[in-house]
Design a binder for these strands. Structure first.
Lengths: 143, 143
DNA sequence: GATTAACTTAGAGCGAGCTTTAAGTCAAGA
DNA sequence: TCTTGACTTAAAGCTCGCTCTAAGTTAATC
């Protein structure tokens, strides 16, 4: 089963422009063209797009994704370099997770702040809510 | 206690260029200048930079951050709009958290894939490790 | 045969967020 | 007084990741 670029755009949420851009950039080395010169995407290409999306959203740049895809094309001898890329990427995702939790705390603080402010006015927030006063010091006075 | 732009750069990890850019862009409306025209940053300014960093890293654009800071300047009558911004931001962060976990699964899959491949060769991964075969279908064959 | 719609290419353009440049001011120390 | 170094400004330049344009091809339908 093969898909046209328009179908892939629908399936992935990427635009046809973006798909052509990725292809030209070297992210989709296996995409074939039919006799009319139209791209035919396979399931493997879709899985690769899925992975590209994952790598992109975990912070890898297109250039680095292209490097990884180049390595895949080179076969078994690049196995350990590819393995290292994912180990490193996992570490960076763990850091992001921690950062996300810290940011969640800050947003939660702001939400409690505004709840209190809506009740008592901004001038009275830290008088009315001592917990907020202490959380503020903990979360924002880092310098 | 006031800080020079260079000190703030050190404390925050932002460049002096970026700090001036933020100021000019309207993210730091309260930063004063001394008689020589040099910026003097207060603790409040540092806390605001901390918040800007948080909003930025949870996906808000500088334009939207500026809008929030404009609202702060307008006082109490914008309280509920500011509250809404944080409620919305919290929702978007929860979505990011889910996406992060999905991506973590995919990275873990790849790590297990390469561990197996390094042992048995890429040609044998799915023969040697049936769990990987099923995880692959689950994680990447979404289309 | 003409129209339509989906595709093709090369290449220009765009928005975000910095980053650098060029030219100048200022204050402290040798 | 001269130099040094940290600052100031306005504005140009840069990278990334698209996004759009212009001109053309192809295949199916009226």
């Amino acid at each position: 089963m093969a898909y046209s670029i328009g179908q892939v755009a629908q399936l992935t949420g990427l635009s046809t422009h973006t798909l052509r851009y990725y292809d030209k950039y070297g992210l989709l080395p296996k995409v074939q063209k039919n006799s009319a010169g139209l791209r035919r995407f396979t399931e493997d290409d879709l899985n690769l797009l899925n992975l590209i999306e994952c790598l992109k959203s975990t912070g890898l740049k297109l250039k680095d994704i292209r490097h990884y895809i180049d390595l895949m094309q080179q076969g078994e001898r690049t196995l350990s370099e590819r393995y290292q890329i994912f180990l490193k990427q996992k570490q960076s995702l763990l850091l992001r997770q921690q950062e996300l939790l810290r940011n969640m705390e800050k947003l939660d603080f702001k939400i409690r702040y505004y709840k209190t402010a809506l009740k008592y006015g901004e001038a009275n927030v830290y008088k009315k809510n001592k917990q907020l006063a202490s959380d503020r010091a903990r979360l924002f006075a880092k310098f």
